[in-house]
Design a binder for these strands. Structure first.
Lengths: 152, 152
DNA sequence: CCTATTCTTGACTAAAATAGTCAGGAATAC
DNA sequence: GTATTCCTGACTATTTTAGTCAAGAATAGG
């Protein structure tokens, strides 16, 4: 699990898609204008999102993208996974013999840590983000969000 | 909050420092050998860790680095903050007028999300990681860890 | 059928971040 | 004094990120 600006772009674009969903699909050109992300870059991102089965596409005039399922069933972790292909975390290539013949620190440590973060982001759906956006929570910050999550 | 390999290196090095802590400080040369991180790169990282007041240094023969305080009082979030200087997440430069004169999606969304992750990593100390390392938890994975954390 | 729209793909490029190198200097234990 | 270790800054190679460009395929609507 990596957290980069690319992941941010993808989550933002997906949230835009969720918010502006209606009868018609949403074109990348629209998202590009609203979110100020270059069209070609969006094309790359959505190619991956489509391969990850998070969106469906429709070609031709009036075409565009739709969420592949309800926003409450699409999670931030899935979006980031689709767009940031996984890194090889180990420098022992999974042999586990790098620390005096034993398994090294790095291997388990970061694997687990990124596992935890993954777990964490797997609990936040586009639906959750839309709710918060709608409510415009300005007071509280992280704490309130953590509350919200533990209530779910 | 970003999560990159640099942060991983830093956390690993700090954990090595915590584990090998004794009467004498630990030299970067030792960490370099054990963790297979280039010495010069470690020097860069520890310059930042020292500025972040996470470690103290001692020059000369037998010198090296120590944790600035007990491992249970040093948290993963602090380490990552020290080495990965903060990014400007907003593309509206904090004016909040990028989405038709209103505040944009991106701004609040990712700021809050990374706030949550920050909050999360602020609960994991080097002490926690050492405990887990010592116990060599092989069964369970992320779930057991989350349990462990909620028990704290 | 024609045309504009939109997705789809691949190759390419520029800029930034990451990881690492190198060299010189300062402090200090022995 | 001298070897060790931190400390600093400048430099470089590699990788990733973000963006460009161009050509093509599908299709809605006239």
């Amino acid at each position: 699990m990596k957290l980069t600006t690319r992941g941010r772009y993808a989550v933002t674009a997906m949230l835009d898609l969720a918010i502006n969903a209606g009868n018609r699909p949403v074109s990348l050109a629209d998202i590009s204008v609203r979110q100020e992300i270059s069209l070609s870059y969006l094309e790359q991102l959505f190619a991956k999102l489509r391969r990850g089965q998070l969106v469906t596409s429709a070609r031709g005039p009036g075409g565009g993208y739709r969420l592949a399922r309800c926003g409450t069933e699409i999670f931030v972790a899935q979006i980031i996974d689709a767009v940031d292909e996984s890194v090889d975390v180990t420098n022992c290539q999974g042999k586990g013999n790098c620390y005096h013949g034993e398994t090294c620190l790095t291997h388990h440590l970061w694997e687990d840590l990124s596992g935890q973060i993954h777990e964490f982001l797997s609990q936040i759906s586009l639906g959750d983000l839309m709710d918060r956006q709608r409510r415009k929570v300005t007071q509280g910050g992280a704490e309130t969000v953590l509350q919200t999550l533990s209530i779910r």
